[in-house]
């Protein structure tokens, strides 16, 4: 990647982050929603830790990574809406007729989404702390959770961008997201300990990237991390993210076929 591409990535990222900061509604939605989840699920499922075999002291401890990961999925899966808007407004076409590299355009999306996801995750972790959550794995464990949620967000962000670019219909993105979010979250250990899940669900969860992020994060955050789990799940997430971004960059070509 040339230095020019890096410069361009920086300028394009800056543009996107500035735009987000200037739209307070957007910030409020992405930040308030996790808080609501934290509060709602925390109250609703408070007693599940008492089930034999759950294996956690306080449900809030268990819930924080779940909400971090769910929020990473739900905020990134709307990335395609922004891409659609840029297409409809003609902004994407304007950039495509300048010398800006396609990689820089896509990188900027990835970096911006990564920064947003990281900020959102940190906030949830801090709120959890405020509510009395305990993070025995310390800063290192939290960092793993952060990286895992950013990688997972990248997968969904890039996927959403690709859908936006290919299908160019808001309805498709809305439909896909509505269809995916809850099954993906509930077919994972986000809110329920795997030991208490029906066995078929546990098997499905093993192949669910959302669960990979949870396994990696929770393991690293525990008092006694299993770094093997962290590395395998983290590695799988990284590979998936790379593939998703690559595919998403490829959709530029298909987009340019249709303009």
């Amino acid at each position: 990647m040339s230095t020019e591409t890096l410069y361009q990535t920086w300028y394009m990222t800056q543009r996107q982050l500035t735009a987000i900061l200037r739209q307070p509604i957007f910030l409020v939605v992405t930040l308030v929603q996790p808080v609501i989840w934290l509060f709602l699920f925390g109250s609703l499922f408070r007693k599940v830790v008492e089930l034999p075999g759950f294996g956690a002291g306080s449900y809030l401890d268990y819930l924080v990574p779940g909400v971090v990961v769910m929020s990473a999925v739900s905020s990134n899966m709307w990335a395609g809406m922004g891409t659609l808007e840029e297409i409809e407004r003609g902004t994407l076409n304007r950039f495509l007729t300048t010398p800006v590299s396609r990689a820089a355009l896509m990188n900027a999306n990835v970096v911006q989404q990564g920064v947003s996801t990281a900020a959102q995750s940190v906030l949830i972790v801090l709120l959890g702390k405020l509510g009395g959550a305990d993070y025995p794995g310390g800063v290192g464990g939290l960092l793993v959770l952060l990286v895992a949620s950013v990688l997972l967000g990248t997968v969904f962000g890039a996927g959403s961008n690709a859908v936006g670019m290919l299908v160019r219909q808001r309805e498709s993105i809305i439909g896909i997201n509505t269809f995916l979010l809850l099954p993906l979250t509930f077919l994972s250990s986000a809110f329920m300990a795997p030991g208490l899940m029906p066995s078929w669900m546990r098997h499905v969860a093993d192949g669910n990237p959302v669960n990979w992020a949870l396994v990696a994060g929770r393991s690293a955050m525990s008092a006694d991390p299993d770094w093997g789990d962290v590395l395998t799940r983290g590695g799988a997430l990284l590979a998936l993210a790379v593939v998703a971004v690559w595919l998403s960059t490829r959709t530029f070509r298909s987009y340019q076929q249709s303009v």
Binding site: R15, T18, A19, R22, Q23, E88, R89, G90, T91, N93, R94, T97
Partner: peptide, 10 residues
């Protein structure tokens, strides 16, 4: 281009 293309939030 026909469509503006300027970034409205900049």
């Amino acid at each position: 281009a026909q469509k503006s293309g300027a970034d409205p939030v900049a």
